[in-house]
Deep mutational scan, measured.
Amino acid sequence: HNLTITQGKLFFHYNPKLCLSEIHKMEEVSGTKGRQERNDIALKTNGDQASCENELLKFSYIRTSFDKILLRWEPYWPPDFRDLLGFMLFYKEAPYQNVTEFDGQDACGSNSWTVVDIDPPLRSNDPKSQNHPGWLMRGLKPWTQYAIFVKTLVTFSDERRTYGAKSDIIYVQTDATNPSVPLDPISVSNSSSQIILKWKPPSDPNGNITHYLVFWERQAEDSELFELDYCLKGLKLPSRTWSPPFESEDSQKHNQSEYEDSAGECCSCPKTDSQILKELEESSFRKTFEDYLHNVVFVPRKTSSGTGAEDPRPSRKRRSLGDVGNVTVAVPTVAAFPNTSSTSVPTSPEEHRPFEKVVNKESLVISGLRHFTGYRIELQACNQDTPEERCSVAAYVSARTMPEAKADDIVGPVTHEIFENNVVHLMWQEPKEPNGLIVLYEVSYRRYGDEELHLCVSRKHFALERGCRLRGLSPGNYSVRIRATSLAGNGSWTEPTYFYVTDYLDVPSNIA
């Protein structure tokens, strides 16, 4: 807008934040220059609390790290170098490059900038070799853009010569660093050979998330399962459950009422301010606690030095998902009996873990797994792929695949051998790939016309006998059925096997 004052003059007093240069501009645009008398524009009460600059400061050096910015700028000295009290560095987070010096300023003089007072450097006698002032900004957020400017702080001049310097606002972004852990990993099994893994992005990506790394490792069953005799009275049979499938998407929606109208769909109840505040506090606490764990609990591995020492970490090797089922080394339970199943799973520490690289999504279907087997899954978020990966501390989750139908069934015939004193040795093959492992066998036998009897055969007993022995049988026709019990439950009964026990007292003698 054009402003013209045809008559009258300007009068400025007691404006401590208004620089004289701005008042002189007002004289020019209003056409009143030359009308004012000496005392109409006070030299001592206008701009006496402001830094009124008329020179431009330029930054000469900028260096960044993930949490620091090192700045240096060209030296500046007023005509009387004693008038320079120091520099004021202003900075704040700036997602967009549209910041002005006066953003967030209120009537009390406060604003949204963080201000650092910096002492002037030592003055050199040689004007050509003056030290460049600077400042190291610490405690910054990774991968965050900051708006920065600097200006001088000078003393009051009796001659009211307006001098000083100020830089333009520059924008500097800190470097990326390792992201925080992925949030809320959930693993479920939808079949006997697959596990579905879902997660949420890290709360602090500290860069642009480029991919996720998912490692999985087959877990050995508890050692007590191999040692305890679950045929003993009072000892509860062990059981394991597989990871249940995901709930429906509708039930997972946030901010939804727990109660549904019987007449149909209901609208979600909005969260109160107290609920939102509580969630923010919980989120802040979780982030602080995660940072504490990362800094205190997890110790970084030592990389190899120039002395030739090897990095103890196993090298990563990509495998196809079809090879995942046989990740671990199978060892027989008892070496003397080769027909026992290889369900003991000690994992070799030198073995390469299978892994998958996930790009542009937060889910993965891990296939080719062994049925009813526990897996430990390790999830890392990465925001750099080359020249070397920059990934987060791992988040861990466990899951067990679903049982395989008929995996616990005894394959092959049940054979028998009759000894003296009416002892019958029953023999059968253990299931080759049971659900988890076989903890015991149930032997059901009966003599024709009598009630059915049951015998429990422990895992250890089966390994020693290759089956079991029935003792003290009365003469007669017998039928026997056997079924295995694994961590997933009972298998199917075998087809009945028949044998006849004679009275050993009636056996004919070869003595003449």
Rank of each mutant, 00 (worst) to 15 (best):
K361T: 10
E247T: 08
L437W: 03
E433M: 06
C267G: 04
P244A: 08
D311T: 14
E356R: 09
E224G: 05
K253V: 01
S243V: 10
P300T: 13
L470E: 00
I209Y: 01
V393Q: 03
T485W: 09
N383P: 03
S268D: 08
E495P: 11
Y375V: 06
A381G: 04
A220K: 07
D385G: 11
V365Q: 13
G322F: 02
D503R: 13
R240A: 02
T494G: 01
V296N: 14
P238I: 09
E217R: 11
S304L: 10
Y500I: 09
T307Q: 08
K357M: 13
R353Q: 14
V329K: 04
C269L: 10
V414K: 01
E452A: 12
N383S: 04
N206L: 14
I410V: 15
G491A: 08
Y504R: 05
S474M: 08
L487C: 14
V324M: 11
A407H: 09
I438L: 07
Y445C: 04
E265R: 15
E217F: 03
S251A: 07
S304N: 15
A220C: 15
L232K: 05
S257E: 15
C456Y: 03
V365P: 09
T328S: 15
R353S: 10
R313E: 15
H371S: 13
D291R: 09
L232Q: 06
A399E: 09
T401V: 03
K271T: 09
T494K: 02
A407P: 01
G476M: 00
G472L: 08
A309L: 12
K357A: 10
N326L: 15
D273F: 13
S458H: 07
R301V: 06
S268V: 12
S509W: 07
E362I: 12
R316E: 09
T272S: 05
A381L: 03
T373G: 05
E362P: 04
P508K: 04
E417C: 04
R400V: 09
D503M: 10
V443H: 01
F289R: 09
N255I: 09
E290A: 14
K278A: 15
N360A: 12
E404L: 05
P413K: 12
L505Q: 07
E224W: 07
Y445N: 02
A399H: 12
A399F: 07
T303G: 11
T401N: 01
D261G: 10
V359G: 12
I276T: 09
S248P: 08
S348N: 14
Y504Q: 12
I377S: 02
G436A: 12
G472W: 11
S248W: 10
P312F: 11
R400A: 09
G374M: 06
A463W: 11
E227H: 10
R400F: 10
K236L: 12
A395F: 08
T333M: 15
P312D: 14
S305N: 12
S344F: 09
S251L: 13
N360T: 12
D385H: 11
R459Y: 09
F462L: 04
S479P: 00
Q429E: 15
F462Y: 03
A463K: 08
E281F: 14
R481H: 06
H371M: 01
A336R: 04
G476Y: 00
R218E: 10
V345S: 11
V345R: 09
E258T: 14
Y504C: 04
G368S: 11
Y504A: 08
F298N: 15
P244R: 09
G491F: 02
S239A: 14
Y504F: 08
P300F: 14
K317D: 15
D409I: 10
R218T: 13
E260T: 08
T343D: 06
H254V: 09
C382I: 01
D503T: 07
E221M: 14
P312H: 12
E378T: 13
Y375G: 00
R466Q: 03
D222R: 08
L228G: 12
V397D: 03
L464T: 12
L235M: 12
P244N: 14
E452K: 07
N477C: 05
P387H: 06
Y504M: 05
R313H: 01
A309I: 10
T328K: 10
V296Q: 13
K361G: 07
E249K: 14
E281P: 05
P475W: 05
T386H: 07
F215V: 12
G308D: 10
Q219N: 07
L321S: 10
V327L: 11
Q256I: 14
L277R: 12
Y212R: 00
W242H: 10
R319I: 06
Y441A: 00
R353V: 08
K302Q: 12
